[in-house]
Simulated assay, not measured.
Amino acid sequence: MLQIDSLTKRYSNSDVALKGVSLNLRAGEVVGLIGPSGAGKSTLIRCVNRLVTPTSGRIALDGQDLALVSGSALRRVRRQIGMIFQEYALVERLTVMENLLSGRLGYVGFWRSWARRFDAQDIARAFELLARVGLAGMENKRADALSGGQRQRVGIARALMQQPRLLLVDEPTASLDPKTSRQIMRLIMELCAERGLAAIVNIHDVVLATQYLPRIVGLQAGQIVYDGPAAELDAGALTRIYGDEDWTAITRKHSDQMQQAGTDGARAAAYPEPEVMP
């Protein structure tokens, strides 16, 4: 579905953010992107949706090279790519519903959006998404009246309004408390599974990443130094990604989580919940 080949990004000040990055994503596959600050994680995501223009390399979505498109062709491609931002990127003075419907800008155009002329089908889809992300009944609240977790849920629903095939998620839990972070990660994974969406999730919390994301890609100084299952992200891999450190606490916590997941799965199989008749 998504093929990134030898992607390089050099900024005008001669800083090289990406050095020949190659990465493939299958339809429906969700990948966690980890690494220290300045490793190139956000640049990689922004190159994929062309918020940043790569210096060289190829980014192909279903065979179409995104590095070569511009103008109306780029706008059409971006309809297939939903973006979820760290700082939510909501219009504070607008309502939840108005922010949600802005996800249809790529389809209805600026003037129809400005005049609040949306199709009944789009409005119905917005109500469905609000209910799905746990915000039913909040459509008329202003964005600036929401908590951080609620704002992120609006951002997720807005991205899904595009009906994308690929989600790019940039630090979705950076501003959230631990409980809300887990809820948001669980919601993202459930929505991707329900809709068959592929996703790249840039995340700084290694424990959270290994708990929810099956495949981990580690960046260091603009290069991929780890690409594999979350279960195999050991102290050696973490050292390659982040540098020398005592990773005992993180690897132990990850191991405990894997064991607990196995215990919970076995318990659920042995003692299934009784079926509730309608």
Rank of each mutant, 00 (worst) to 15 (best):
M1I: 03
D5W: 05
D5G: 00
L7T: 12
S12V: 02
L18Y: 00
L25H: 11
V30K: 10
V31A: 01
G32I: 01
S37Q: 12
R50K: 13
R50F: 13
S56R: 04
D65A: 04
L68H: 03
L68T: 05
V69Q: 01
L74Q: 12
R76V: 10
Q80Y: 08
F85N: 07
Q86H: 13
Q86N: 13
E87M: 00
Y88N: 10
Y88D: 07
A89Y: 05
L100T: 03
R104F: 01
F110S: 12
W111I: 14
R112I: 09
W114S: 14
R116P: 03
R116F: 05
R125I: 11
L129E: 06
R132P: 09
A136V: 04
A136L: 06
M138K: 14
R142G: 05
R142Q: 12
D144L: 07
S147M: 05
S147N: 06
G148D: 09
G149E: 10
Q150V: 03
R153S: 10
R153G: 05
R158S: 14
M161S: 07
L168F: 08
A174S: 15
L176R: 03
C192T: 12
A198W: 05
I203N: 10
H204P: 06
A221T: 07
V225T: 07
Y226G: 04
Y226E: 02
G228F: 05
A231M: 09
E232N: 13
L233M: 09
Y242K: 09
E245T: 03
I250L: 02
S255Y: 01
Q260L: 15
A261N: 10
A266Y: 04
A270S: 09
P278N: 07
